[in-house]
Design a protein around this nucleic acid. Sequence first.
DNA 1: AACTATGTATATTAAATTAGTATGATAATT
DNA 2: AATTATCATACTAATTTAATATACATAGTT
Lengths: 146, 146
Amino acid sequence: MKLSTKTRYGTRVLIELALKVNQGAISVSKISSNQKISVKYLEQILRTLRQAGVVKSVRGPKGGHLLAKDPSKIYLGQIVRLFEGQTDLVSCVSSPENCAMAAECLVRDAWQDATSILYKKLDNISIASLIKNSDKDYQGAACISS
Amino acid sequence: MKLSTKTRYGTRVLIELALKVNQGAISVSKISSNQKISVKYLEQILRTLRQAGVVKSVRGPKGGHLLAKDPSKIYLGQIVRLFEGQTDLVSCVSSPENCAMAAECLVRDAWQDATSILYKKLDNISIASLIKNSDKDYQGAACISS
DNA sequence: AACTATGTATATTAAATTAGTATGATAATT
DNA sequence: AATTATCATACTAATTTAATATACATAGTT
């Protein structure tokens, strides 16, 4: 039931980029040291974000990463979906074909309701809303568990 | 993000017991064959349910398991909490002491809100409500994924 | 009282998933 | 052309989850 580290790290990375939205591209090495995430692991996370169109990357010297969208248009729901392999509480919610009895299953609807309520909430929390009340010195870093 | 098999199996077991609430104690071997869960694994699940006061057990020949509470008083939220090791989306929600920066963390409140919304929903779904519209022949069995 | 069908508990193994590392390649700026 | 950085895949390690095995306890039946 817990979120993967990729989801948590990915969120932290986006917060750092959002806080530094006026500083141009931020290099992997800088994010790595700020967030205490290894360069190689971070590259995987950034690639996922880039392929989803959330982050854009600039190569070469002075290159790095920056947000591809306004922070108010990036929602936790999208981040969670990107990084969590299975986004439903149980697999039959999105793949009823996996279960011969999905149609008459007594629990499936309940899990589905719970799942959709969770994502409805997550889809309503933007990166912008998270950083709204923060001071610019804080880099979104160093929290071990989120 | 997905629920463990113990949570899913546990729910199915409770549904079967709720549907057979007038048939006295149901033996592990019967539940095992109905739900296609190995006897030994099922025993672990039943022990958890028993220790939580959800199920009661009768020893000896003709023994078995039955609900210890009315199905309308057993909620999915309780079942999930019983079987999922970590019930929060991120560990700092319930254990802020794990993270030195929990207080000023920009994301923690958001994960906490999402977690509480999810459980608010699960705490509102009873076993009784799940079986309300079912016919008595269905034993809540055979669904692979839930 | 012995027998046997049942539940109880703990320890161990196996499988799957997640987390992280290593290697190598490609692209862009200076 | 050299340098600095991102991109992509393969591999390894650690953790968690799932399941099995072994041993014991209890209650009813004969």
